[in-house]
Computed example of a mutant assay.
Amino acid sequence: MKKPVKGKLRLFIICSQLLAREGLILLTEQDEDLEVVGDAAEDEAGIAGVAELHPDVVIVADGWGGEECSCADIVKRLNGDHPHIPILVISPHIENARVQMALAAGATGYLPLGVDMDELVRVLYTVSRGELTLHPSMLPAILRHIEAEPGKPIATTPDDLTQRERDILSELSQGLTDREIAQRLFISVRTVQSHLAHIYEKLHVHSRTEAALFAVQHSLE
């Protein structure tokens, strides 16, 4: 995982539900390289806070207001005002339509509620580099999103992959973390990460999401 060479990754959290917001703050601050510089319960306060503090990533926790409450509006406003600041949505709702709305509004990443700490930290750093990142369980939504966006090249052949790389890619497409893949394949986490680096290079992709998308497109899942 690439971490900043200097300083911490500065986060701003927008979430209407107090316990969920405080939980996210406590969770992210477990990593010494992450810093929550501000938080807000209301959209307007969040927009003002982001404008004042200029965080590296904005986390929008969506869905606690019920099925009709969507983050798309605030994501669109934030993206319009600060297109250079990545936005990660965390939500209990993972329906395709909901994910697509967030992506269309300008979200850089979307995670289901309940991801573990390692996954959250990894995604925060990936999103901070502007790389589109979703949990593999949301692949149907990202397939539609990427197919609607010209200019997103995806490798067209899996022929250069070794059998072990195919195995890892298959596990990755099921939404497993590096640790879970290592346990399933009886190898070390470092070995998994080394294989993933080779997979990214061979497929000309830059994130787990793009690699998982490749697996689905080529029936490797």
Rank of each mutant, 00 (worst) to 15 (best):
T191G: 08
D81N: 10
G175D: 02
D73P: 06
G130F: 06
E131N: 10
K6V: 07
K202S: 08
Y200P: 05
R179K: 14
E221D: 15
I47C: 01
D73E: 10
V123E: 05
K3E: 11
D81W: 10
H145T: 06
S70G: 11
I47K: 00
R144H: 10
R122S: 07
K6E: 10
V58T: 01
S188L: 05
V205Q: 08
D116I: 09
E180L: 15
H93S: 13
R21I: 05
Q100K: 08
L176Y: 13
G151K: 06
S170L: 02
A155F: 10
L27G: 04
E22M: 11
I90Q: 00
R21L: 09
P55Q: 11
F214M: 07
G175M: 07
L11C: 04
E149G: 14
R179H: 12
A41V: 14
D43S: 09
Q30G: 15
I25R: 07
R164A: 11
L196E: 04
V89F: 06
L185W: 02
P55Y: 00
A41P: 04
S137A: 07
L26A: 14
L213E: 03
E210Y: 05
I146W: 01
L113D: 07
S91N: 13
M1H: 12
A215H: 04
L132A: 00
L203A: 05
L185D: 01
A48H: 04
L78H: 00
S137G: 08
V127K: 01
T191E: 05
R179M: 14
G38M: 00
V127W: 03
